[in-house]
Design a protein around this nucleic acid. Sequence first.
DNA 1: GACGTGCTTAGTAAGGCTCCTTAACTTTAT
DNA 2: ATAAAGTTAAGGAGCCTTACTAAGCACGTC
Lengths: 399, 399
Amino acid sequence: MSENGAMPASDAAEQPEQPWNRRRLRSTNERLLLDRLRTGGAASRAQLARETGLSKPTVSSALAALEEAGLVHEVGTQAPERGRVAVLYAPDPAAGYALGIDIGRSWLRVAVADLDGAVVARADVRNRARTSGAMADLVVSTARQVVANSGVGAHEVAHAVVGTPGVYDEKQRRVRYAMHLPGWGRAGLFDRMREELGIPLEVHNDANLAALGEYTYGVGAGSRLFAYIMIGTGLGMGVVSEGRLFTGAHGGAGEIGFLPWPGRHKPGTLEDAVSGEAVVEAARHFGMTGQLTAKAVFDAAREGHGPAVEAVRLEGERIAHTVAVATAVLDPDLVVLGGGVGHSVDLLLRPVRETLRALTPLRPRIAPGRLGEDAVLLGAVATALGTARDVVFERRSAS
Amino acid sequence: MSENGAMPASDAAEQPEQPWNRRRLRSTNERLLLDRLRTGGAASRAQLARETGLSKPTVSSALAALEEAGLVHEVGTQAPERGRVAVLYAPDPAAGYALGIDIGRSWLRVAVADLDGAVVARADVRNRARTSGAMADLVVSTARQVVANSGVGAHEVAHAVVGTPGVYDEKQRRVRYAMHLPGWGRAGLFDRMREELGIPLEVHNDANLAALGEYTYGVGAGSRLFAYIMIGTGLGMGVVSEGRLFTGAHGGAGEIGFLPWPGRHKPGTLEDAVSGEAVVEAARHFGMTGQLTAKAVFDAAREGHGPAVEAVRLEGERIAHTVAVATAVLDPDLVVLGGGVGHSVDLLLRPVRETLRALTPLRPRIAPGRLGEDAVLLGAVATALGTARDVVFERRSAS
DNA sequence: GACGTGCTTAGTAAGGCTCCTTAACTTTAT
DNA sequence: ATAAAGTTAAGGAGCCTTACTAAGCACGTC
């Protein structure tokens, strides 16, 4: 999870294996209770004891410690069929906050969420920055603004995650393969943001985060192996396996833009053949004229304009090829299409499914994303939340 | 790991989350010590205490319990630069055994290994069975024979793993996609073997096991993400991520035989284009005549025979395509070529590398397998060992 | 050269502390 | 009266710390 990210300086994940002494035992049981409350909803002490296998006194004392630390609180009572009413406990969502940032080519999105994952403040800013430096400044100022709007103290934001095109190289401290953002490959850009924000900041690939977003909040929930194909300015894929991001050896897994594609004239990459620009080019090839954008082509296709329909069909075929490849290699139970063309995925689904039928006997479920343009942002929030929960839990007794 | 396999009836992996009571604490620390001894070699009590962070008395008592259970034993002494000599302990390899079985189209291989992974008995039997029933009988009788030869009691064999082409479907209790073994898709075949052998038995895909074999004993050691491409009668890929098998949603990950392949005449699958038969066909196409086998073509190419060289070059190009696809999707740091053509991989490496250079900017390390025909068998042994170690450890105090 | 002394490291013993469990008890509902 | 939630009290398992013994080497002294 963290391999792509920069950890705060205080991170101690390097020490080999902590021994399981008593202190850790208690801490693990508190964690067990907290996780149970998070995933299973509010519960009483007696209920927790039954479900976790711990004894009632242990649950009582651990819960007291958690309440003392501000991690859980009473949320009401529940009367059983007979007997004394039960006091229900639930995690306190205000025990900490997480920051998610989506840096896209044309939009910058920032959101603050509480530990329950509820977004408490958010901003969507048009990205007009011309230089990577201006861009970094915009990120920092927007993030500060959103945190201020949320009414949350900056020190209560336990963790932040940034999504960006390309792959963040931890050692070189820079992003690689971010073709569509000029200057974005400069070293130290994110160190600067981290420093100015004063919040631990992790950097991840946008397609990966979008995949996690759809997995956590969207259509991918519960999937065992789930592939998210992001089609837009570029082409990317994020893979979630057993609930965890699949990153490959160097964080480059899912960089399907590099798939070889047998171009009609010269061999190229799949990205050239599938990205938004390729749709425009195909439309031209079929006879459309004028100032075209991918969106314009899709809109025309929706109206039934012949050349546009043809271009979309061709795009569908190419995406089907991508899906076929991903399916044979990964065996997903769900493939989700999203990204910049998200609003037009409905047009693509049929040609994709039809082509796929002719290509391969393997046929995973294919669905459009449910989060639309928010997938990356929500994925960043979800990822930041994971770490934020850990951080908040870890420092519960340190104060 | 076990998702493809059938667990013994006593398996209790279903219960949600054991609480971390004291008993489990002790058990975890014993496990910590045992793992340390397994991976780090023999060590004294004091050394273990330093390395694990446990106190010396705790190490002493845990080690005493392990010795009592027969899991570790003294293996000698070591004099430090100054001071009293240390008594060294190591895991007792004879505390249990594992059984590995490789069911191939033409060979059946069986091996028994001790907990250190050392093979103590082995048999390689030509597979002449005509029916799947006869095949199952042969597996059982050979396995019994090998266990008998090893001098190990049958009840000391804690776990067995079988490798077979195809994907084992846990629910239907049968193998799917095993085209090259007639009748092999029958339901209940492996249940019968398990019953007759009286040993818990897991079934896995052969390419997956070969990947684990090369990872554990061969060229893949230490790789973060490692892909093993098995080229032979069929075409398969096994993926090892962070030391664990990557299986996909239904155990079908790496079934790259199903990759669409733009055939000259009709669209087909990659398996048709790359498998042994395709090499023969290509050689014919280039002008070779006679009763050809894949091996014959490779041998001729080694002698410099023109048409054979061409056929091998073509095969190399197609494999390069496979590698390019796997690389873009998975981002491996190592791709290993093996399988039936293992003896001729040296001939393929150059064309593969050259073609790859033209296809994609991503270039993982490519290497031939080190285990040759034994990859599947050793992978089965390695996998069985993993479970066997757990089983032996779990039942240490049950006696 | 024999031997005592001191230093160093391995391992054990005793005592205390933490935290879990069991069992009994209190509280509050039907 | 019964039943369920939750607390209190007693007991015990297992870890840690401290202090000790055991066993080797170095070296100086006789």
